[in-house]
Nucleic acid binder design. Structure first.
Lengths: 224, 224
DNA sequence: CCCCGAGCAGACAGATCCGTCTGCTACCCT
DNA sequence: AGGGTAGCAGACGGATCTGTCTGCTCGGGG
């Protein structure tokens, strides 16, 4: 029985407080790197174990099986995405600025050389029917669509759901272009400019301008 | 040495003329179905052989190895795409109508329940570095970008390359939405309406209308 | 002091997958 | 009629992958 890890009181099982990271964390970091760069099916368990310095038994104790690791890998990325998007949105005041701010953030992500597209898109392209990739991806897509729809509605778009879906198309397209094309700067410019045009065409004219600060973190990109 | 099949005079090796299809064709049809629906790495050779009724030796005689089959699978799809797009474009007269016609065609593809997104996007998401997926995909992406750029330039867009990239984003986004989302009709509407808005915003006003015929084939969709 | 749990290391089994090779059949062409 | 070729069927080997299981170490608490 694979011990449903969920009881953790406040600290991770053994160590976890100091600079030392436990096997669970190391495994997830390695999984995020390898799964994202090379694909879920391409990367075998032995390689994950080698590069993270974790024993095979620890993997199965923590995650049950490989699919469990993949699920947590995607869930943690989902959580990181939500936090990142919340932080981005917090930098802007009006709904219109927030919508466009999301595409400025896309521009930042595209500029990052490690950006390899959306983890959910990539994982879904190679997912078997029974795997849990589909479930997490569905949750993510629902959240993303709701986010755009709410913002479009708040921006008083004439047809909020349509505008939301249009912007989502640009969002996904940018992720695809980031993985397949060389000209990432062009794709970023296209996404931002298209988003601006679509928002302008669907919403009443905005209030007078107020350029916001534009800070971004140098970490591994989280967009997708 | 894997016998570089290329000498075929005018008919395929043995049969090929009558209703009978040779092993090469059967293999490619099965590959297109399985690779597209389930993924290139997920589908093994034995399954391809079983479902196509072809001997293993025939596969290696025709394609050298699995990567060769994958390459031809993508190349033939590329060729089908070019022919299909040429046919779509031939239905319209002006560059603007042609650009928008491509998105009407996207709408048709999205309506097809077997449409599972773009074969190149899907295959690239799970491709190993050395495989030939990357090469064929590069050719396809270059062709696609050139196509949009030429049409945008012909439509007298103020910034043809930008408009082309914007439309390409919508194109890719529609393929992603087709695979990951349930609401395909909404995605199709969003792609078409966004394309119209972006074209209108970037080009001088069009000539008076002239609604074209809109016929589509009931075959397996080729878009991507 | 000792015991228990967490984690590391690696062997092992079962499945799968790729690719090669050996037979056999059937058809076409001379 | 006979030989060559394309194709079918399947065994086989080597590699790889997932998942289980057995030892071993180490540190902390009763």
């Amino acid at each position: 029985m694979p011990k449903s890890r969920s009881s953790g009181p406040e600290t991770r099982p053994t160590e976890a407080v100091g600079g030392e990271r436990g096997p669970r964390q190391r495994l997830l970091e390695t999984a995020d790197r390898l799964f994202y760069d090379e694909g879920v099916h391409v990367v075998g368990i032995d390689r994950l174990l080698d590069e993270s310095g974790v024993a095979k038994a620890s993997l199965y104790a923590h995650f049950g099986n490989k699919d469990g690791l993949v699920r947590v890998y995607l869930e943690e990325h989902f959580e990181a995405r939500r936090e990142h998007v919340a932080e981005v949105l917090s930098r802007y005041a009006t709904p219109r600025e927030r919508l466009l701010g999301l595409f400025s953030d896309v521009e930042d992500a595209l500029a990052h050389p490690m950006f390899q597209g959306c983890r959910f898109v990539n994982a879904s392209a190679e997912a078997r029917p029974g795997e849990s990739v589909g479930a997490v991806t569905d949750e993510y897509r629902t959240w993303l669509r709701t986010l755009f729809t709410d913002l479009a509605r708040a921006a008083k778009a004439k047809n909020p759901r349509r505008l939301a879906r249009q912007l989502a198309l640009l969002y996904d397209g940018a992720a695809v272009a980031a993985r397949l094309d060389q000209d990432r700067a062009g794709a970023a410019d296209a996404a931002r400019s298209a988003a601006t045009a679509l928002v302008d065409a669907s919403t009443p004219p905005p209030a007078p301008p107020a350029t916001p600060a534009k800070g971004s973190s140098p970490k591994r990109p989280t967009s997708g």
